[in-house]
């Protein structure tokens, strides 16, 4: 039970730290916006091409944005030297990861929701009727990105060249999420939309597998 109460307290801390400055949210949202605009310059999409490419571009932008966003996740603790006190404060170090990954998922989802209207306008894709399922896809995809990203950012924070290392370690690991979520989003935004439940299920399985791995091996990631 203490795992949940610890997680809740730590999550509160994460959210408070972020909402004091809103640095992460604003920079990430602007970053996604820039990527979406630059993509449209790079491929100059007509309506049909846009339908074909846009979901993949959206997820690629989310993936790149996440690898920027997660940089500060453990780095912040390191620069302020608060990680050891955090570890002493909780009985199960998994609570630290759980809080951070929930916070990361929330931040990622918030920026995504903020960017969706721009995405719909730029690429001329009507989203409104598919919004509930789309949010579900965004949620399971972002959760997977956050779980793997939180684990990897704990690794990269302890290495040299950490800013470069995080995307390098994280992006290949997230290949399955990119493949499946852009396909599911694609068929959802198609002219004849289909909800690919199998794909959503796969993303949930990805989340579950990496969550279990983090639960099993998380404490070693934080060893002094």
């Amino acid at each position: 039970m203490s795992l949940f109460s610890n997680t809740a307290i730590l999550l509160g801390k994460e959210l408070r730290t972020e909402f004091r400055s809103r640095e992460l949210l604003t920079t990430t949202a602007v970053f996604i916006l820039i990527v979406l605009v630059l993509f449209s310059f790079a491929i100059n999409p007509g309506t049909e091409e846009a339908r074909q490419f846009a979901p993949g571009l959206l997820w690629l932008a989310i993936l790149f944005a996440s690898s920027l966003m997660f940089q500060s996740c453990f780095l912040r603790e390191q620069t302020n030297d608060t990680l050891s006190s955090l570890r002493l404060a909780v009985s199960d170090p998994f609570a630290i990861f759980l809080a951070k990954l929930i916070a990361n998922t929330l931040f990622l989802l918030m920026t995504e929701l903020l960017m969706l209207p721009f995405f719909a306008i730029f690429y001329n894709i009507p989203l409104w009727s598919k919004l509930p399922v789309l949010i579900l896809v965004l949620f399971v995809g972002s959760l997977g990105i956050s779980i793997a990203g939180t684990a990897i950012s704990a690794i990269s924070a302890q290495a040299r060249m950490r800013e470069l290392l995080l995307p390098l370690l994280l992006l290949p690991l997230l290949t399955p999420v990119l493949v499946v979520s852009s396909l599911v989003t694609g068929s959802l935004l198609d002219r004849d939309p289909i909800v690919q439940w199998k794909g959503i299920g796969f993303l949930a399985v990805f989340d579950l597998i990496f969550l279990t791995a983090l639960w099993l091996f998380g404490e070693y990631l934080l060893e002094e």
Partner: peptide
């Protein structure tokens, strides 16, 4: 320690990569 942990995550990822690409 850290590379061992990354190696574990990477190896777990391999079947997920394979099936995601194979199925979709």
């Amino acid at each position: 320690l850290l590379s061992a942990l990354f190696g574990i995550f990477a190896f777990i990822d391999v079947p997920l990569v394979f099936f995601s690409i194979r199925w979709w």
